[in-house]
Write a protein that binds this DNA or RNA. Structure first.
Length: 257
DNA sequence: ATGTCGGAATTATTCCGA
C-alpha cells in the first residue's frame, strides 16, 4: 500500500501535473494540501477516472485539503475543532485499515506577526484533538504540510534561520508534543542522518541551489512501523514536467506492507 | 532584485499569501 502527502499549491493550476504524478506513482492513499478551491470547484472527474474516491475540505481561494483513495473511504473529521476560522486545514478519513489525516498547518508568516501565536495554538489544538479522539495504539497516519522544520538537519541553513519562522523552539516544542503522544516521523525513522527537503522557494533558483526545507511529513503511530518498507521524497516532481509548472513542494511517498 | 508562483479583486493590473 502506497501512501503520500503533497502540497500542490493550487489544484486547478496543478491538475495536469497531479494527474501525471498519479499515473506515474500509482499511490493508493494521498493527502493533498493547498487546493485553493471550493469543494464545488474540485476537478472530480479526471481524478475519479484514475480510480480514486475523493474527500474534500475546501474554501474559496486559499488553504483546502483533500484525500484521494483507491479503496472506499469514510470522512470522520472535517476541520480542526475550534480552529476553523483559520481556514480549511484538516481532513480525516478511514480508508483501508487506517485512520488517515491530512493537514495544512498555518504558515505563521513571521515570529512578530499575529499569525505566529495563532499557529502555535493551532498546533496545540491538533495535539489535543489526537489525544482526545485517537489512540496511539491504533494504525493512525497524520500527514501534510506542517510548516515546521522539525530539526536542524531539516533546514538548508539552520544557522541563519534558527529562531525565525519554521525554525523556532516554540514551533518545535508543539511538533514534539505530537511525537510524545505516539507519532513517529516516518522519514526520519527510516533515514536518521539524511538531509532531504520537501519544499524549495520558487524564488532565486532555490531548488537548484539546494536551498530547501523538510516541512512535509508523514507521521505514523508505532503500530505502523513494522509495515514501513520505504519512504522517500519525490524530488523529481519538484521539476517541470512536459512544460508543466511544479508546485513549490515535492510529494513524500511511503510504501507500507 | 523583495528574484516566483496562484488566486482574488477588478478588468490587465495590483494586491496578498506563501
Amino acid at each position: 500500500m502506497r501512501i503520500a502527502t503533497w502540497n500542490v499549491n493550487g489544484l486547478r493550476s496543478r491538475l495536469d501535473f497531479v494527474l501525471h504524478w498519479l499515473r506515474a506513482r500509482q499511490p493508493d492513499l494521498v493527502g493533498l494540501q493547498e487546493l485553493k478551491l471550493t469543494p464545488e470547484q474540485f476537478p472530480r472527474e479526471p481524478i475519479e477516472q484514475l480510480g480514486y474516491r475523493i474527500a474534500v475540505h475546501g474554501q474559496k481561494g486559499w488553504n483546502g485539503v483533500a484525500v484521494l483513495s483507491r479503496t472506499p473511504l469514510e470522512v470522520t473529521q472535517q476541520g480542526l475543532p475550534g480552529q476553523e476560522d483559520f481556514g480549511a486545514r484538516l481532513l480525516t478519513v478511514s480508508a483501508a485499515d487506517l485512520s488517515f489525516t491530512t493537514i495544512y498547518c498555518p504558515n505563521g508568516k513571521q515570529v512578530s506577526h499575529d499569525d505566529f501565536p495563532r499557529k502555535l495554538a493551532w498546533l496545540e489544538a491538533l495535539a489535543a484533538h489526537f489525544a482526545e479522539r485517537h489512540s496511539p495504539d491504533a494504525p493512525v497516519v497524520l500527514c501534510g504540510d506542517f510548516n515546521v522544520v522539525p530539526a536542524a538537519l531539516d533546514s538548508w541553513n539552520e544557522e541563519l534561520f534558527h529562531g525565525r519562522i519554521f525554525h523556532t523552539d516554540e514551533e518545535r516544542a508543539r511538533f514534539r508534543a505530537l511525537l510524545d503522544w505516539g507519532f513517529v516521523d516516518l522519514f526520519r525513522e527510516k533515514h536518521p542522518d539524511e538531509q532531504k527537503f520537501s519544499w524549495w522557494d520558487y524564488r532565486g533558483g532555490a531548488f537548484h541551489r539546494g536551498q530547501g526545507l523538510r516541512i512535509d511529513l508523514l507521521l505514523g503511530t508505532r503500530a505502523l512501523l513494522p509495515r514501513i518498507r520505504s519512504i522517500e521524497t519525490d524530488r523529481d516532481y519538484r521539476k517541470k514536467k512536459d512544460g508543466l509548472t511544479a508546485s513549490d513542494h515535492a510529494p513524500v511517498i511511503a510504501d507500507l506492507e
